Amino acid sequence: MLDKILASIGIGAARVDARITSAGVRQGDELVGEVHVIGGSVEQSISQIYMYLYTEYSREVGGTQSRQKEVLASYRISDSLVIRPNETRIIPFQLRVPHHAPISFRTQQVYLSTGLDIEMAIDPKDKDLITVLPDPLIEQIFAQAEDLGFRHTSESGYCEYKKHIHRMVPFVQEFELRPTDRFRDELDEIELIFDVYSEGVDVLLEVDRKAKNARGLLQDMLGLDERYVRFTISRTKGLASEELARMIQRGLDMIPK
């Protein structure tokens, strides 16, 4: 009886450990692994094994920046089962990572939380860091940007709250790049936001022209030196050669000199 009471508050209770098979997973692909359930000192009934994928994003609340948690997807791994003392159950899983999961870039992270639902007890949990790799179409864009001499700034890759831009989540992951070669005399920076789905990637490109005179400084202060260009890359066609350069030039042409 004492063992059951202790297990209900987590002492000598069953434990859970998710083990990921692959080192990384692309947006939209499957995450493969195993859930290890290790019995404690008493027999326990588990009503379900669940997992959820989540990330965090920055949001200004009351003039202060705070971190908000966002669940990207939830999964039910197993129905009810009984785990005996010191028994180990291994349950394989394959989970589809949603296209809208942010890329693991610098300090922007994605986590997999695994839990056991045990009635009248503290639910054991496990947390694992997941490496989310970019969609191949996004890799093409980054490759073209690098060929054009663009480099990520220290602020690039962070997720922040933005309404009405992404279809699935209340934040966007912004990639901020500065020119070092071809566009360095015309641009301060560009920003890229991606909306990935099964047929392709929608791209929102922000072009920020460099101020060269008093008028340009005024436009900079008023935010008139920035223009947005939207375009879509389909999986059937991919990214054409120099397409990013053409889109950047289109944005530049929209800004008064």
Rank of each mutant, 00 (worst) to 15 (best):
E160F: 14
E160V: 11
E160I: 12
Y161F: 15
Y161P: 07
Y161I: 11
Y161H: 13
K162N: 12
K163C: 08
K163I: 13
K163L: 15
K163S: 15
H164W: 03
H164E: 10
I165H: 00
I165P: 00
I165A: 02
H166T: 08
H166Y: 03
R167H: 14
R167Y: 12
M168Q: 11
M168W: 07
M168V: 15
V169C: 08
V169E: 01
V169K: 01
P170Q: 11
P170T: 11
P170I: 14
P170M: 12
P170V: 14
V172C: 09
V172D: 00
Q173S: 13
Q173V: 13
E174F: 07
E174V: 14
F175H: 05
F175N: 02
F175I: 07
E176P: 03
E176I: 10
L177V: 04
L177N: 04
P179M: 06
P179C: 09
P179F: 02
T180V: 14
T180N: 15
D181N: 07
D181C: 09
R182K: 11
R182I: 13
F183L: 04
F183D: 01
F183A: 02
D185P: 09
E186T: 06
D188H: 07
E189P: 02
E189C: 06
I190S: 04
E191K: 08
E191P: 03
L192G: 01
L192F: 02
F194M: 01
F194H: 00
D195W: 01
V196D: 01
Y197E: 08
Y197T: 05
Y197H: 09
E199T: 10
E199I: 09
E199V: 12
G200A: 06
G200V: 01
V201Q: 00
V201M: 01
D202K: 06
D202H: 06
V203T: 03
V203E: 02
L204Y: 05
L204S: 10
L205K: 02
V207R: 00
D208R: 04
R209F: 00
R209P: 00
K210R: 15
K210V: 15
K210P: 07
A211I: 12
A211T: 10
A211E: 06
A211R: 03
K212T: 15
N213I: 08
N213E: 03
N213P: 04
A214I: 13
A214V: 14
R215W: 12
R215T: 13
R215C: 13
R215P: 03
G216H: 01
L217D: 11
L217M: 14
L218R: 12
L218E: 12
D220Q: 13
M221T: 12
M221L: 15
L222Y: 11
G223C: 08
L224K: 08
L224F: 12
D225I: 08
D225V: 07
E226C: 07
E226T: 09
E226S: 04
E226R: 07
E226G: 01
R227L: 05
Y228A: 05
Y228I: 06
Y228W: 11
